[in-house]
Design a protein around this nucleic acid. Structure first.
Length: 480
RNA sequence: GGCGCUAUCGUCUAACGGUUAGGACAGAGCCCUCUCAAGGCUUAAAUACGGGUUCGAUUCCCGUUAGCGCUACCA
């Protein structure tokens, strides 16, 4: 059974590229009947933060996919140490006493490639032991084989055969001078110990993998399979990052805007992977069934956001489609928190009446605040009285319509069908087209021309509010 | 600079070496209609460039160009 892991480091919020990596790992595990492991890679004590740990858990919890086992690297330092010692004992690592700050100058070698600090790699064992015993701080470095130039090789499940000359791999650090493991060491030690079978991670690790292959080899353990994922990039082509692109790359931004977790997952899955048929909207189970490493492609995918709209239109479209097809009761329930968070009090009963009116008119849950705003306030925001005048009509006509509407609504049956019948009849009586009749009423009760369907809106608003707003509209119109 | 990876409509993508290069989103138009949506129909839009290999390249190989990634005692 495959064992896969998602290994975020708590040094920033959970970003959408990480979320996609998590999802692909999860999908692979579920498809294969394997185990999904969450491992917090927190060996960089200086950069860890409680806030980012919270952000990661929040984001993952929202995705609602779950995992089977959980570990924290900081609790496994002894294991990492042991692997470092084993490699050192095999003669494949050496102590580097170069002070961390002093390492700059040597960064570029003869061909522009830095390989190791002179004097350290070839230091005699006796001197190395003596200086270590004397308490001089050192980093432990991997002794990349240099006697004969050879190729480090592995087969990536996505990118295929990979090879790199050892002449192009520097003597990377295994342990820092404070004794803590570096990412490379800790990651490999844990992957080996947790018996990870497939490492599915971002393509930014593709070149690091050569180092990892070297580590596994030096420690005498078999390397897992590797599958690198094409990167998610911004419209400018660069890797998504908080610094450059801001909160649009954070999972919680999507959550807070009112994305449904599954719409978000569905969208992310189609970035760098395809089921190879024309399906685009897939249920969770369909994703599990269709997912395979072979379906992953090799080129970076652009997340198409702008300053004006932080969300990729396709993501928004998937969300809108999911909203449209969900039971209205569920929609009402999901909408409520957004309305309340904006400081409005709404009865669940009213929300249930509003939900079907906006169901096919919103893309994000938070759109309820702009699509249905007039339901939530006692007084309408000020609007121009001219809005009340219908096409091919004048103020006098609008006035006549509203006065008649006021009368009709006083006695009409306040159901969708009752209102429709009464208002259509009224239009006929006035010798008007339905549209001419409805437009002034719509503006009077909603405060604008673009709004949900009129009869359902009036029914949800209720007789009292509807008549009051029509009365106010008449007052606005009189001076004209 | 060195090393690695990538290259199909604006974006995400599909295409045993043989297709009028398909789909989706976004765009445009029409229909439906109480506005807006939703829905239906129609439309515009791509194989980076140059060489090979082949009867035939989007597909295989080489080069060019461009982009990205790595090049830390970060992960």
């Amino acid at each position: 059974m495959p064992r896969v892991r998602f290994a975020p480091s708590p040094t920033g919020f959970l970003h959408i590229g990480s979320a996609r990596t998590f999802i692909f790992n999860w999908l692979y595990a579920r498809h294969m009947g394997g185990t999904m492991i969450l491992r917090i890679d927190d060996t960089d004590v200086g950069r860890n933060s409680e806030a980012s740990l919270t952000s990661i858990y929040e984001g993952l919890r929202w995705l609602d996919l779950g995992w089977d086992e959980e570990y924290r690297q900081s609790e496994r330092l002894a294991l990492h140490q042991r692997m470092a010692e084993a490699i050192f004992a095999n003669g494949l690592a050496y102590r580097d006493f170069t002070p961390a700050e002093a390492a700059q100058g040597e960064k570029s070698g003869a061909h522009g490639t830095w390989l190791f600090h002179t004097g350290m790699r070839e230091m005699a064992t006796a001197e190395s032991d003596r200086r270590a015993a004397a308490g001089e701080p050192f980093a432990l470095r991997f002794r990349v084989p240099r006697d004969r130039e050879r190729q480090v090789r592995f087969t990536d499940c996505v990118y295929g055969e990979q090879a790199k000359s050892t002449a192009d791999i520097e003597d990377f650090a295994l342990l820092r001078s404070d004794g803590l493991p570096t990412y490379h060491l800790a990651s490999c030690a844990d992957d080996a110990d947790l018996r990870i079978s497939h490492i599915i991670r971002g393509q930014d690790h593709l070149t690091n993998t050569f180092k990892h292959v070297l580590i596994f080899e030096a420690a005498g353990v078999a390397a897992p399979q590797f599958a690198h994922l094409p990167l998610l990039v911004a419209p400018d082509g660069t890797k998504l990052s908080k610094r450059r692109h801001g909160p649009v790359v954070s999972v919680t931004t999507y959550r807070d805007a009112g994305f449904l977790p599954h719409a978000f997952i569905n969208f992310l899955c189609l970035l760098g992977w395809s089921p190879k048929d024309d399906r685009e909207r897939l249920t969770r189970q369909e994703l599990i069934d269709a997912f395979s490493l072979e379906g992953i492609n090799r080129s970076n995918a652009v997340v198409n956001f702008t300053e004006a709209d932080p969300f990729d239109p396709k993501a928004a479209h998937f969300n809108a489609e999911l909203i449209r097809t969900m039971p209205v009761e569920e929609l009402a329930e999901r909408l409520l928190p957004f309305v309340r968070a904006a400081g409005h009090q709404v009865e669940p009963g009213i929300m249930a009446q509003i939900a079907p009116l906006i169901q096919e008119r919103i893309k994000l849950l938070r759109d309820v605040l702009t699509a249905a705003d007039f339901f939530f306030v006692e007084e309408l925001a000020p609007y121009d009285a001219a809005e009340l005048i219908p096409k091919k009509g004048d103020a006098a006509l609008a006035l006549r319509v509203l006065e008649r509407a006021g009368e009709v609504l006083a006695t009409a049956d306040f159901s969708h069908d009752g209102l429709e019948a009464a208002l259509r009849q009224a239009a006929q009586d006035l010798g008007l087209k339905a549209g001419q009749m409805f437009e002034p009423i719509r503006v009077a009760v909603c405060g604008r021309k673009t709004a949900p369907p009129l009869f359902g809106t009036l029914a949800a608003l209720g007789r009292q509010t509807s008549r009051k707003r029509i009365g106010q509209a008449i007052e606005k119109l009189k001076p004209i």
